[in-house]
Design a protein around this nucleic acid. Structure first.
Lengths: 152, 152
DNA sequence: CTATTATGTTATCCTAGATAACTAAATTAG
DNA sequence: CTAATTTAGTTATCTAGGATAACATAATAG
């Protein structure tokens, strides 16, 4: 055979406009990308996105109970147990039984947890700044968040 | 006690700006919301987002092999086996061993699959139109997709 | 006081994805 | 051409994220 008489069934690119035009598809792709980046940045700290936001929420709302923190993030309290238990074992979070409600665990950051979070926050802010730059500045970032809000 | 002497530790709303301002967090929220809606719309058809896009891709690219379709959607070929097997069992997709490559399965929609997809496509287009309306029109939708692209 | 509700917990299930190992077929190297 | 390598599909297995059910204990309502 000579070289390439006809394209026949060559491995050329597929027609994918019908899928790539879907808003949900693009949202998912972008979200996966951003989370990938997050995981890479926080690999050394062994911190997942959900764990980071839990630490931030506890820092900004010390003494709150598990259910309250979990609810804000849309995490079921059953699953939150394991998450916060892990943070406690690493010495970042403290669960002290509340005096006003002996059922509840009041959540606080330990000293170690505060140092750890300060570092994590700095790394996250750098990452966020990079995302804003990629978007095209603060204005573009605000427009994106406004558009995303409309989907919620 | 009189009524509310001091707020003390009332169940008022938490300070959550630090988490809700995160681009990744908002992306995830929006994406979950859109997928929720998708699942609701396609509940009767028992069709998941990934399955829908697989059907669309096969329809627009008949005769392609599993690996090609899977790759476009970022699905590992090992996991794609189960997915396409399910669609085959439901009589929507047909796997015919390719003549050019006896290892490969050429994918086609069955007649039933084409009818089924026509219906699913109509439902999806209605849902997509609703999302566009929520965003504020086609222009807003295009701006959103452009912004999302910058994160990829 | 009794019945109901709320908090944290355990156990369990389900789904999405990822990895490793395997077969059969195709392709490349020698 | 044969031998080694690569490719397509498959199976089995593992992990992580979420969802549900049931439970003990404590708080609250009737």
């Amino acid at each position: 055979m000579s070289d390439n008489p006809e394209p026949l069934i060559t491995a050329d690119s597929l027609r994918a406009e019908a899928t790539t035009g879907i808003i949900g598809y693009r949202l998912r792709r972008a979200q996966l990308n951003v989370f990938q980046k997050f995981l890479a940045v926080f690999e050394d700290l062994r911190l997942r996105p959900a764990e980071y936001s839990v630490l931030v929420l506890i820092a900004d709302n010390p003494g709150r109970k598990q259910t309250e923190i979990a609810e804000v993030l849309g995490i079921k309290r059953a699953n939150f147990v394991t998450l916060v238990h892990g943070l406690e074992e690493r010495g970042l979070v403290e669960r002290s039984s509340s005096l006003q409600d002996k059922r509840a665990n009041a959540l606080h950051l330990t000293g170690t947890g505060q140092e750890f979070l300060a570092n994590a926050r700095a790394m996250h802010e750098a990452m966020e700044a990079d995302l804003v730059a990629r978007l095209g500045g603060q204005g573009a970032r605000d427009r994106l968040l406004a558009l995303l809000d409309r989907l919620t």
